[in-house]
């Protein structure tokens, strides 16, 4: 009886996860079907049909290059947002500051303008400073759009930490930078990590800005890369879903690996100091 009670939550969790993953599982199954199977409405691939995956990586669409580009842009944006976000969040959460609420709201407002309205002016600005078709041309706007989330999440967590932390750090002779790096970040690790992942994924998935600002093939990101597969009318579902699987799975694996590394690394840092 006790055993059942112990297992029950896991059974429930597995069922729930299956339900959540259902559309994704379906996407993966469809990516393993030929176009004939898809059109006839089968729900299970007859055999393992890998042609869609080969097609994704066949030389015509240097898809690996797009993945690398997305990686650079998303990674840099995540690092930049968290860095800038930490500084701002620390000032807002732990220091005496006048007009704090106005600053908070000003930062938040970066995520208020509809993106479609921002495209045209961003294009003009970036062209003026010569950043079209560069990584920075995407990193800077993405950082702006994600800064609110980073600052507010970090603020929320920094504020919950006990007020004696700075004094203790000061007693140890730690400077300001070291205090943030070795004391605050590790303690707020779950928040920092979550914010970084959310920012990373946002950039990984963004389409309209990436399409408009970086037109050169060498600068394309994965979402634009996927948009290159459909024809004028033709929708190669199998290839599109294969490409979507290719860009989603590594993300999940990455998070799985990283969350252990980063969280434990940060924790170790906290214990050391």
């Amino acid at each position: 009886m006790k055993k059942i009670a112990a297992i029950a939550p896991y059974v429930f969790a597995i069922l729930l996860l299956l339900l959540i993953a259902l559309p994704f599982i379906w996407q993966v199954l469809t990516s393993l079907m030929s176009s004939g199977e898809i059109a006839s409405g089968s729900s299970w691939p007859k055999g393992l049909y890998f042609k869609n995956y080969l097609e994704v990586f066949s030389g015509r669409y240097s898809f690996l290059r797009y993945i690398a580009n997305s990686f650079i842009v998303s990674g840099a944006t995540a690092v930049l947002s968290i860095t800038i976000g930490c500084l701002a969040a620390y000032a807002l959460a732990r220091m005496r500051l006048r007009h704090k609420n106005i600053f908070m709201l000003a930062i938040l407002s970066a995520a208020m303008l509809p993106q479609i309205a921002a495209i045209s002016p961003l294009f003009l600005i970036l062209r003026r400073v010569g950043l079209l078709n560069t990584y920075w041309g995407l990193i800077i706007p993405y950082t702006g759009f994600n800064l609110p989330l980073a600052v507010w999440m970090l603020y929320n967590f920094f504020r919950q930490l006990p007020p004696e932390l700075e004094e203790a750090a000061a007693l140890d002779g730690a400077g300001f930078g070291r205090t943030i790096w070795h004391v605050f970040l590790p303690l707020a690790a779950p928040g920092v990590f979550t914010a970084a992942i959310l920012v990373f994924i946002f950039c990984w998935n963004e389409f309209l800005l990436a399409l408009t600002l970086n037109t050169q093939e060498s600068m394309r990101t994965v979402t634009v890369g996927i948009a290159m597969f459909p024809g004028l009318y033709e929708m190669p579902w199998g290839i599109i879903f294969a490409a979507a699987t290719v860009i989603t799975l590594p993300l999940v694996v990455l998070v799985l690996v990283l969350q252990r590394r980063i969280v434990s690394g940060l924790m170790a840092g906290a214990i050391k100091s």
Partner: peptide, 18 residues
């Protein structure tokens, strides 16, 4: 960790695709 990674899948699939 594993559960969290699975739960994240929907958020990780680009909106256009989902």
């Amino acid at each position: 960790g594993l559960v969290r990674a699975v739960v994240m899948i929907p958020w990780a699939v680009p909106t256009v695709i989902s």
